[in-house]
Every structure is written in C-alpha cells, then in structure tokens.
Design a protein around this nucleic acid. Structure first.
Lengths: 249, 249
DNA sequence: CGCGGTTTTGACCTTTATCAATCGCTGTGG
DNA sequence: CCACAGCGATTGATAAAGGTCAAAACCGCG
C-alpha cells in the first residue's frame, strides 16, 4: 500500500512526534496550569527532573510503593497490569502534559506499570510534599481533585466504548480520542502517528489484532482514513466522528 | 419452569432480601469500620439519618451539586447516567454497607444518579464536615482513600469483564461478584435474589436482554444455576467460578 | 379477569474470533 | 551490501457467538 500521508514515507521522521516539539506544557516545568503565580519558585524545589528514558523502560511498576506522581514532558507511555496468564492488560496511554500515577494515591501502591513507548522525559512530583503544600494552597488541592475527576471520567468513557460490540465504533472512538488529545497539545488534528502497536490498541479496546487491523483497512477502503502503517490521516473526520458517536448512543 | 429454589415460591418473601435483616453494618450507625473508638459520639452529630425511601426513588441525581456521601443501611440502588438517546447507562449496583457518591468528590457534582431498586434506608454524610474531621483523624483520612481505592479497583474489574466477548463469562463474573458481595454481608453465598431486572444486568454488562436471558437459561440447562425468575441458586459454584475466571485470563 | 411490563424462546443475520498463511518492515551478521 | 531471521501487520477462510426481529409465555397488578 503506497504512502497516502501528506509527506513522503521518510517524512515520518520529519513530522514531529507527539511530545517532541514545542515549549514545556507547564508554565513552570511540570507545574499544573494556572498555579504558577501562587506557587512561584517553590515548585522547583519539589520537582525532580529526569533524563529522557529510552523506549520500553518503566517509569513505575505495578504494586511498587507509591510515593510520587509523574508529569510527562515529552514522549508517551502505556499503562498496563499483568494478568495471571502472563499477558498484559493495557489500561491507558498517556502523552506530553499528562500526569500519571494517580491510581497509586488511594491504595499506596501503583495499580499499573507505566512503560515508555518512545524516548520519554518526565518530572517526578514527590507526593508527600505535594500533599503537604496542597493543604495550604487551595488551588493545588483543587487541581489534584480535578486530575482525579478527569481520570475517573476517562474510565467511564472507556467503559462506554467497551460496552459497544462494534469494532468500528471502538476504533473510531479511540482515534477520535487520540486525535483530540493530540490537538489539545497543538499537533495536527488530521494527521497523526500512532505511538502504539496494533496489538496494544486491540488489547486496550478488547478486540483481537485481526479485527483491529480489519477495521483500519475498512476505514481506508471507505476513504475515512488513509493508513500507512502507524501514520494515520483522517480523510473524513466527520464520518469518523459519526461512527465514534455510536458508542454513546 | 418449576421453582427449584430451596423454599417454596412464596418463600422469596421469607428469605431475607439483601440489606434487610441483621445489625447496622457499621459499629456506629454509618461509621466506617474500625473508627468507632477514634470517633465516638462525634459521629452521631455529623450523620443525617433518613427514613426508608420507596422503590424507584433517587438518592441523588447526575450533575446535582455534590455535598454528601451516602451510606446504605438496607436495600439496594443502581447508579446510572443518562445517554443522549434518553436511555440509561448503568454504572453499578450498591447494597447495604456500601458508601456511594464518591464520584462527586472530584468534580463537585455527582457523576451518576442513584436510584433505589427496593425500599432503601440510608444515612447522609455531609462531606464538608467529613473532610474537616479527616484532617485530624488520620484513620478517617485513610478510610476515605481506601473507599476511593476500592471504587477504582471495582471499575478496573468491570473493564476486564467488558473486554471479554463471551456473554457467559460476563454473566458468570457478575454473579460471582454479586454472590461475594452478599456473602460479605452475611447472606447465603449459594442462594440469592437478584434485586435488578435482566434489562439492568444486560445494560450494565454491555449485552442485550436476549443474550443475558439465554446465558441464564444455558447455565440452568447445564446445572450450574437453578433459576426461578430473580431467585438464583448456585448449583455448581466451582464451575461458575471457573467460567468467571476466564474474564481474567 | 385482562392489561402491561418483563422474560424467555425461536429463526435468522451480522459480526467477531479463530486458525493459518502471507507480506513487509527492521535489524543483525556474514 | 545483501541474505536472513524475527516481529508486526494484513488478509483469507471458517466457525462460533452475539445481535436483531418477532412472538409467545409468564408474572404482577389493578
């Protein structure tokens, strides 16, 4: 299948990958939006910056003692739990600007493993200090709640997708979600490069790899998508949106 | 189909429904376990007891401003969100001893509607006061985290179920979950009366009513269950457990 | 007793899972 | 530089399973 994406096949390296270009997503490195003025230089004393981690490294592991949140500066990660059978159950993907590790707050240990899908740089936010300061800074407290709220809302969205039997709906909803996530970060909302494998997508959406692949092919055949391996162009965003909407009745 | 349940058909009224009999599930009315000594009579000053609500009433509604958690003393409720189409998406069921409304903590408004499936009595726990006291009582703080943790874990469990295509697996996992919930409350772990309709079960599990009904029938035919309308007896709990286990690989 | 809602069952159709094979990149080593 | 091994992705054929539409059975209730 010829490259249908705007640029040539080696253009994949030229197009910015999610999380690559642009300024730090936080006013202050890793500082939640809107708290810069309240917080000032204090922030720099709390946050631990980390060197970029290569692909396939773990930021934290399932059951590891929880002691920090992590803010992704660039790159992307997948979160998963190990199953009895040894396979992994993927619970989510995160990109530049996301704060991960929230599931560890409640039970004192990370509920998932966070593994990089690409070279990824991030900041560590020790939770004990964050919590202490949140007692005084009402804005920070509110931000923490807001993060938890978004996390829970995202899970409800995913559940609605998983209750839909149609693979096309699930894939469409997934692509729309990804596209919007990219768009919020200032990337093209019609042309994206998937950081995860088809197998990962299938695992996340509760489908088989074959069905996932077939949905991509079908969308390509119907000129809804242009698919070149992991490079996806939304040829008909409205139609994709319509199909995704079927998840939500 | 003849009544296969232990007692006669009108025995359904004699068998305690979930949440009916027994002492208050909390040491103090509505007080989370293990905090009685720390908290003492303070608790009674916070909690607002409510008269039993008849079937099909709402304890709180979606988008309503969040200001309290609710502890179910008896009866049972279903939680749901309204869809664009007007239908409801059921997100969970709760019974005696459960504390509901947690999804409202993060975003300041209840994310779901909680509707009684039966006559239900409950206590209201004003959140502002709870939060204030939690600052000093480390045990209470911990209990709040623990509740959130359980809530998130339950959602992950449900997602694993929803990623399983087999209706039998989903139904089996649902029944095992229900049975264990009942057993923890001191009821029989082999004979239960479902408080919700088949339609509700199907909605919750992402199946059609017909498929749900067929799974029940199949289990009955294979002597895994004895089904008399909403009275269910687990004839072969091990086999049911085995089938449910297929959800988790 | 008859109505309405829920549940069950049947027949049929659509879709996905499964099994198997092929294709295409990618990276390694000769 | 090329051959080859290995992994991911795609495609095909087949079978299994759930969805859909329709009808009947059953229960509870007035």
């Amino acid at each position: 299948m010829a490259s249908l994406i705007g640029s040539s096949s080696e253009g994949a390296d030229l197009r910015p990958k999610i999380g690559d270009a642009g300024p730090c997503p936080y006013h202050y490195p890793c500082l939640p939006d809107g708290l810069k003025s309240d917080f000032g230089d204090e922030w720099g004393k709390i946050v631990v910056h980390h060197e970029p981690l290569p692909k396939r490294s773990c930021i934290f592991r399932e059951n590891q003692e929880f002691d920090a949140l992590f803010a992704i500066r660039s790159g992307c990660v997948k979160k998963y739990r190990l199953q009895k059978s040894g396979g992994e159950q993927i619970t989510g993907f995160n990109f530049r600007g996301d704060i991960i590790g929230l599931s560890g707050i409640a039970n004192g240990a990370y509920a998932t493993t966070a593994e990089t899908l690409d070279t990824t740089s991030f900041c560590e936010i020790p939770f004990a200090q964050l919590e202490r300061r949140a007692r005084d800074l009402i804005g920070l407290q509110h931000k923490l709640y807001s993060l938890l709220s978004e996390h829970m809302e995202a899970e409800q969205q995913l559940m609605r997708i998983l209750r839909t039997p149609s693979s096309d709906c699930r894939i469409a909803a997934f692509l729309v979600y990804l596209t919007e996530a990219y768009a919020r970060r200032g990337f093209s909302s019609t042309s994206i490069r998937l950081p995860m494998s088809r197998t990962d997508i299938a695992n996340y959406l509760g489908l088989t790899v074959e069905t996932t692949s077939r949905s991509f092919s079908r969308f390509a055949r119907e000129h809804i998508l242009e698919v070149d391996h992991r490079d996806i162009r939304l040829a008909d965003p409205d139609e994709l949106q319509r199909i995704a909407g079927l998840c939500f009745l």
